[in-house]
Amino acid sequence: MLKTSTSRLSPPSGLRLLNLGFGVWTALVFVFLYLPIFVLVVYSFNTSRLNILWEGFTLRWYLEIADNVRIIRALKNSLIVASFTTLASVIIGTAGAWLLHRYRYRFSRTIQTLICVPMIMPEIVLGVSLLVFFTVVGLELGYLTVILAHVTFCFPFVLVAVQARLQGLDPSLEEAAMDLGASPLKAFWLVIIPCLRPAIVSGALMAFTLSMDELIVTVFTSGLGSATLPTVVFGMAKIGLNPMLNALSAVFVVTTIAFVLFSNHLKKLSAR
């Protein structure tokens, strides 16, 4: 009530107030998101190998990363798997969402439900049943089986995000493009995709993250030499998660941020 009356006096400021409030809230949520990351980075300089209590400052772990073949290999595997998974999930998820929106299929509700099933299936159930399936069809466990398994639970996230964006999308967009002589494919590529981009980006980020972080399904579908970072890290808990893992995470996060800043900068330069 109070807010309503003040805003009536000066309409635009009420809206600005709302935006300001949301801005402050966003800042607080970012503090929440980065608090453990801050701790993680601080502890990457810990002298204690067990890394449970703080003992002293060292740069040693950063120097040791390069020597640890197994960790580097696991990180490489994770990146390979997550990249292919993201690519495949975006293609399947976006195409699926668009087709289910564009056409009225028979059984479309059943298809929709089926898409969500991998999200509810406990990881162990998905992992074990896929292991049995891959063995039965004679597929050797390796990168391929891990990627197939990951796409199965990642693409629904892309699909659901894109569907949310599609709802309420102006259907005349595509028709307009086609009226101008574009083929349906061209209309899709030139009109629909750009319009869906925010949701595709969201979906891709979610798929990449889920794949990078997945443990149980990976354990059951990976073979010799295709273990990903989470499986290695999980095994290390027994002898202590040494600060090198923190150092690795820190390097990874900082490189990503630097890379994005750099590419933004390049884009700006080229736009000039």
Binding site: L131, T135, E140, L141, V219
Partner: peptide, 21 residues
């Protein structure tokens, strides 16, 4: 040496018996 790891005896058993590798 190709080193593949497990973190419980039963996990090992399940994967060994499946015969994928």
């Amino acid at each position: 040496v190709n080193y593949e790891t497990f973190s419980s005896g039963e996990e090992m058993l399940a994967k060994l018996l499946a015969g994928g590798t």
